[in-house]
Design a protein around this nucleic acid. Structure first.
Lengths: 186, 186
DNA sequence: GGGTTTATGGACGGCATAGTCAAGAACGCT
DNA sequence: AGCGTTCTTGACTATGCCGTCCATAAACCC
């Protein structure tokens, strides 16, 4: 039910999506929508919030586990993301879309997107620390900094994928990012 | 004149900007706008096109020159970009904004943004090749691939900056990306 | 089963916006 | 200066959209 609303916002953005369209997509009457959420802005916030939760859950599901597999998980995660970003049917990131239109004007959306990024960075940091324990990454490196880089690459892949860059190029960039991580001195 | 229109689109996006607002901002009557450009969509395309040209010119101005300074220029370029992205008054990238709203629905805008990215990647590739000639980057490395990574980081910094990530973090990520470039074996 | 409360949905008002048009001003050319 | 052409302007139309409202249906409680 909320998924249909999310898909509408996702496809046409905040300003470009009418409440009538959402009503049609969800099968609900507009009165019900306004009764349940209060307004367009609040509805978007709700949808956005749920989406952020789902995104964080997805990352947590892909990362975390035993140290030996940490680097493999990171690699799989970033490469899978690159492939997903190249998928033409992929609608780009709702987060990016909501951010572009509302972040500057809506404090709630802005704060939520920032918190989501931080959560993802924390998950990546933990994974890199596992890599350090396992000897796949230089223990002297700053895991938080490297996680910041990987998050940046993550977002960049999203942006380029949305612009139409092909999968080979995106995966190649992801591989270069992983290859650039500091290996431990031997 | 077009700058005022660009600033309006930049501030409030495509769907969120009314032709009346643009008329007020430019000081022109709406009839003139329609006479000169044909419609809102065409006006945006024109503004977007000019912006892409300016962006490419800006990159070409910052990069290119003698081989000895190539790595320093690349470093300065990426760090300056990180700082600029963190600037709160920065309006985010018009390209990203136009992309988010129109790229999937407007073939012209989509194609233009892709071409712009390619031009930037070419400029970075040339700079990396200069670094290889100068011995700052491993000559065995694939300059095009590394340029793809740096472009990805470039776009990622844009996205994170817009979301409100602070300057220290962005610059730190940019530094990590540069530090991860393969140095020549000695 | 009756009465009350709550959810539903489509019609409606009012407002903003995209795009048009005809009248008038500015301008160039002779 | 006179005249035609182009450019400008602001009012006008038609459409679309946000949010409301009320009649109706459903659910729930006793």
């Amino acid at each position: 039910m909320l998924n249909a609303a999310r898909d509408q916002f996702w496809a046409t953005g905040f300003a470009g999506t009418s409440m009538d369209a959402i009503a049609a997509a969800t099968g609900l009457g507009k009165g019900s929508l306004y009764g349940a959420f209060g307004g367009k802005r609040e509805l978007f916030r709700r949808v956005f919030d749920d989406h952020c939760d789902a995104a964080i859950c997805s990352v947590d599901r892909q990362l975390g586990g035993d140290d030996e597999q940490a680097f493999a998980r990171l690699t799989a995660y970033l490469l899978a993301h690159a492939t997903a970003c190249a998928e033409p049917s992929r609608r780009g990131c709702l987060l990016a879309k909501g951010t572009a239109e509302l972040a500057e004007h809506d404090e709630v959306v802005s704060a939520r997107s920032l918190k989501t990024f931080e959560a993802v960075q924390r998950a990546i940091t933990a994974e890199l620390e596992a890599c350090q324990r396992n000897g796949d990454i230089d223990p002297a490196a700053d895991a938080r900094q490297l996680a910041g880089l990987l998050l940046t690459v993550h977002r960049g892949l999203e942006a380029l994928g949305k612009a139409g860059v092909d999968e080979r190029t995106l995966r190649s960039s992801a591989e270069a990012a992983l290859a650039g991580l500091p290996r431990p001195p031997r």
